[in-house]
Design a protein around this nucleic acid. Structure first.
Lengths: 339, 339
DNA sequence: TTGTACGCGTTATCAG
DNA sequence: CTGATAACGCGTACAA
């Protein structure tokens, strides 16, 4: 059933080499034979054997997706799924496969294997935390790698959304609406995205000429439960607006606010981050920052393949834009949308 | 950096055949040389080249995870992530890799490739619907395959939870608590799991000696929004209990019930399915059926590798048990737990 | 432009 | 128990 290069060659009356050239789009083939061979290839449904190709060329079309602790709360689930989807689609479009490596650090097995030359062409690393312990061995393997999410290490290339800028923008939005005691429920400090969003929050307040009130900052864990706890704590300090660093935390905060008998947005304005489906379905609908995880996945694949194709000494970065999505939870009119 | 079999052979003063035997646990090697070679292998950090191994042996240690439409609402997200996690961990433990193929049907590319002999040793197929169009080509490829989720096709092996039995059990539970107008918000009819849960619901009512009231059945889509819509419709028929075929639908139903000014469980008892984290956090906590998606993933890998190791003509099935988790939403006491 | 020949790292067969 | 040696399917200098 599975034809080989040799058989295709025989069937089309040329040598293996010629077929190989046709298959790999080598220009050194006459148009006529190219056409002919292509026909045979199509007709026979020939597909090159990956193992053989890998062996001969010393390279693969497989990229590894390494996600330590992907199952923890660090990554919000829908985000993770979308990201993976973007990765898979982008890889597929560019004729690559995605090999999965989930799990915690104990999982060294796969990572070792993955880091071995010849197994994968590159790695997409989804970092959950600053200085993830897996980063170093991966880097040491010399395999081209791009991280999803910023890294402090200046050897790593990454793609990320503009967490800081987005957080600053949405916080500014709250300020411009007249809120003055804008609190924030931040993500865990070890997550770069969380740190960046907090930094953006601070920047917005200072840019507005106010002083950052540390009692209005609560560090949580991105989860809904964490949002509840954070909101409960913040309520004591009477904020008139809250920026939660994730929609899930915003959902938790909303429940807590409601439980306290307060109205959104009249008593407290609320804003989130992510624009997960649940954001639009909340009561009231949540003002938030839209990021598109699939795009992150796509961008990571694009960047990685670029790096493989044209190796360079210095790391590269791609920052994706976000959209501020204004809904009712912050008290402005629905149509007051900005980019 | 990456040593080859040949080099290890030289370093340990034996032939590469012997090294190969040691690496592959072939018994035909003296204990002494085995020890010695193992030392060298460890010391040099030797790992076999996968491509070469695949070429020579005609087999791989890669299994494909094919999930058409995994991003749609058909699969609830956390379920999906856990499933993938279970798959990845189980594969890793058994020295296998997981190659991902997400996306819709248009994505034939990867699937074609995957189905090719020699690329993957087997396939784990996550079906979203009855008679998924991808099933046939996959089956035709002759590659060992196990489906996650029941299939009507009697050529397919699968692992699944006992959807029907679980639904019957939880419905019976509601009946035993004294509820007589037990409604259900079912999943989409094209999903086997949804159909099975609905069947279980019907079975329970009939087993209890009641007649199934079709007006108390609403077909929805597993989503929270779908749960709301379904509950709204059902409310007109005055149910005193509702079994939602997913926790997310139960969450939607809960909101709707509350919006109608009714109390849970006093006015209406509520039960779900999945035991997602949110179930325990609901107000009141949700009675539901616990299934463990990671287990499904593990079971799928186990079954698949068994099939590869000892091929058999007939398909095999694994049905995983579930647990009925009794919480406050159905009106019974918390401690009234059954298996 | 096309073909020849060798090598990639392993496994497997067959002698010894 | 161990060691040559032939595949495995393909890429690619090198030759024609």
């Amino acid at each position: 059933m599975a034809r080989t290069l040799e058989q295709i060659a025989e069937l089309s009356g040329v040598s293996r080499s010629t077929v190989s050239r046709v298959v790999n789009d080598d220009p050194r083939v006459s148009e006529a034979t190219r056409e002919h061979v292509r026909d045979v290839v199509r007709r026979e449904g020939y597909r090159p054997n990956l193992a053989a190709r890998g062996l001969a060329s010393g390279t693969t079309n497989v990229i590894a997706a390494v996600m330590p602790g992907a199952v923890d709360n660090i990554l919000s689930d829908p985000f993770f799924v979308s990201l993976l989807h973007g990765l898979a689609v982008a890889a597929d479009e560019r004729d690559h496969f995605v090999m999965l490596s989930l799990g915690d650090t104990s999982f060294r097995h796969t990572v070792d294997e993955i880091a071995r030359q010849g197994v994968v062409a590159g790695i997409v690393f989804v970092a959950g935390q600053v200085d993830d312990p897996l980063l170093e061995p991966l880097l040491a393997s010399q395999t081209p790698m791009v991280s999803i999410g910023r890294s402090d290490d200046d050897r790593v290339s990454y793609v990320d959304v503009d967490n800081r800028g987005s957080a600053q923008q949405i916080t500014s939005h709250l300020l411009r609406l007249g809120h003055r005691r804008v609190a924030t429920i931040a993500g865990p400090n070890f997550a770069p995205a969380a740190a960046d969003r907090l930094a953006g929050y601070r920047a917005a307040i200072e840019a507005f000429g106010l002083r950052v009130d540390e009692t209005l900052i609560y560090e949580s864990d991105f989860s809904e439960a964490g949002g509840r706890v954070g909101m409960r704590a913040l309520l004591e300090h009477r904020p008139d607006a809250v920026f939660a660093a994730s929609d899930r935390m915003a959902a938790g905060a909303l429940n807590e606010i409601r439980a306290a008998g307060l109205q959104i947005p009249d008593d407290i304005a609320l804003a989130g981050f992510d624009d997960m489906p649940l954001a639009a379905e909340m009561e009231p609908p949540l003002t938030t920052v839209r990021q598109r995880p699939e795009r992150l996945g796509e961008a990571a694949v694009a960047l990685l393949l670029d790096m493989i194709a044209t190796p360079a000494s210095s790391p590269r970065r791609t920052i994706l834009p976000t959209d501020l999505i204004v809904r009712a939870s912050c008290g402005s009119r629905q149509d007051q949308k900005e980019r």
